[in-house]
Design a protein around this nucleic acid. Sequence first.
DNA 1: GACTCATCCGACAAGGTTGTCAAACGTGGC
DNA 2: GCCACGTTTGACAACCTTGTCGGATGAGTC
Lengths: 352, 352
Amino acid sequence: MVTQSDPVAAPYRQRATLRDVAAMAGVSIKTVSRVVNGESGVTPAKVAAVTRAIHQLDYRPNVSASALRRANRRTAVIGMVLEDLANPFSSALLRAVEDTANERQVLILAGSVDEDQGRERTLVRAFSERRVDGLIVAPVGEDQGYLRAEIEAGTPTVFVDRPPQGIRADCVLCDNEGGARTAVHHLADAGHRHVGYLGDLRIIPTAQQRFAGYQRACLERGLPWRPADHAHDLHTVEEATAATVRLLRSADPPTALFASQNLVTIGAIAALQRLGLEGTVALVGFDDFPMADLLKPRVSVIAQDPARMGRVAAELLFQRLDGDRSGPRRTVLPTTTIPRGSGEIRPPSGAR
Amino acid sequence: MVTQSDPVAAPYRQRATLRDVAAMAGVSIKTVSRVVNGESGVTPAKVAAVTRAIHQLDYRPNVSASALRRANRRTAVIGMVLEDLANPFSSALLRAVEDTANERQVLILAGSVDEDQGRERTLVRAFSERRVDGLIVAPVGEDQGYLRAEIEAGTPTVFVDRPPQGIRADCVLCDNEGGARTAVHHLADAGHRHVGYLGDLRIIPTAQQRFAGYQRACLERGLPWRPADHAHDLHTVEEATAATVRLLRSADPPTALFASQNLVTIGAIAALQRLGLEGTVALVGFDDFPMADLLKPRVSVIAQDPARMGRVAAELLFQRLDGDRSGPRRTVLPTTTIPRGSGEIRPPSGAR
DNA sequence: GACTCATCCGACAAGGTTGTCAAACGTGGC
DNA sequence: GCCACGTTTGACAACCTTGTCGGATGAGTC
């Protein structure tokens, strides 16, 4: 790492305010305010004088001061609480919300919580202290009751990805149970009777729902129920790899795998490759990921649509901001099955 | 998509202010202010009364109003202008900056520009109107001179990934030329004499630098210079795939490829797979990507370290905010070569 | 010329907060 | 009981803006 530096320092110039512009244009500050906000009732001559002064001084309105005084108090900023800004799911959500917010000149404050409940609360508090107009929250904690005060104070809040607990509020979810169920049906359709389950932390509601979907499909297809084939609480690629290896080396290993999450799927693939079984053991993952169709075999997935989820959540939030005071709304988005190869591998002919 | 809704609406409760707390605690608002800010000179009895009132009213300080009045004017928010919040490079940068900012209770406003110069400017203006304390900008425009006013007004600005043009300012870059040069040397070491170049939009400075590195290495190793082997201005996976196919189907195709960017690398892989040449034609990509070591062959890359870049940039920004007024600093981070297989494929014995 | 009326404009207060300053209070020494 | 001194406290102004309101101006009508 190379750092170059050269010595210079210029004095800071104060930023111009309405008062400065007014002085230069020879009008009152209220008139400048009128021009800045495009209000009527200013003669063209004064508009021109003010506009000239604004450019000359490079005046920037102070939206914080404006929001403080303005009747509706809007700051034109919304807050987003996400699992991890660096993970593709969170960042796709963020990006979709950004695109929707952008149409309304609204900016986004975003933060990661990393499955830390305390962080979720401090982040919400920090946003609230900045008086964000609204919140979009992918909750990690076991109770979002603390958000009731925010919502009642007029900060609309939409939960995404995971439902809120301890409070009734707007949320946009994915059909986790249905998607997981479909995955197992898909594998059963290919002839598998013995499907392993690889799951995320059980405290996460979505993981619970996906396991419920797996369970339901097993019942529906009469697949044998063997707790030894269920690996739970896998939260990293490494954990998933290790668990997959363990599963496949057991006495009576599954002929197919359902991986309930992104990183878990990747861990499973790494394990399959290590054991040389990627062409033998079927695999369906929940949640699509980049490169899934460049791997060999190409990886079949149950895809969520985080961009759509973000868009729907943002649109709902803005409806609320536009005055929609109807009761809490719960939207469930469907999943899409993408067969690419790995999920269509048939069981070895000897398998029961 | 299923939406459920039920009809309820509660009236909004006004948010408590210093005045409300003061009234409840039976003190002046200034005393409450002192307690909130942990200033000395308040008797324990009053501190207790104020604290009780704060909890009872669920008081949230208004940091915007506070920043307006406070001497240093700090809002404890910084702005980040990035290429695309949804792409892994941008989001890794964002996340690293977040972690550094988090230690100081600073929040982040972030936005995507998508190679749109106009958007870069409107985003910076929007941040400036919110009076962010500092800016971290991955510039796309051809001139960042417009930022001089911001910087002179006391908003420290650090450029990342790409150097600013038209202004001398802090920046944190990656050694693009050196990394590209290393890639070609690596391929030449494996015996290749004929290395194709797949590059991003030539208006992007980093793309220029990487091409310069490619060129330099070709000269150093005496590799033949054939413009027909250079595909420029590839900005999507599809464009890269098409260009790669074209290159490899030409009369005298290269035996190795250097892909100057993430998406371009992925496009090249897709093309190689389509042509069945992934085991025959060597490939080194610039910038690592998830799954690179699960593909077959595993993909050799020149890795940048966006997390480190973000951390270094954030630290520099906070140094500036802490009063460091020394001259503009330019930091260049090294790249790392990660040989995984694709870059070590040897040319077919018949190749010149 | 007196009147109405609409338009344009600025004085003033307010939004939630903090910096300044001086008043009030308590303590200790004589 | 008086004074000096340090601590605690609140009144007030200010930060940058916008909402309210009333005054000034000019045109149009009788």
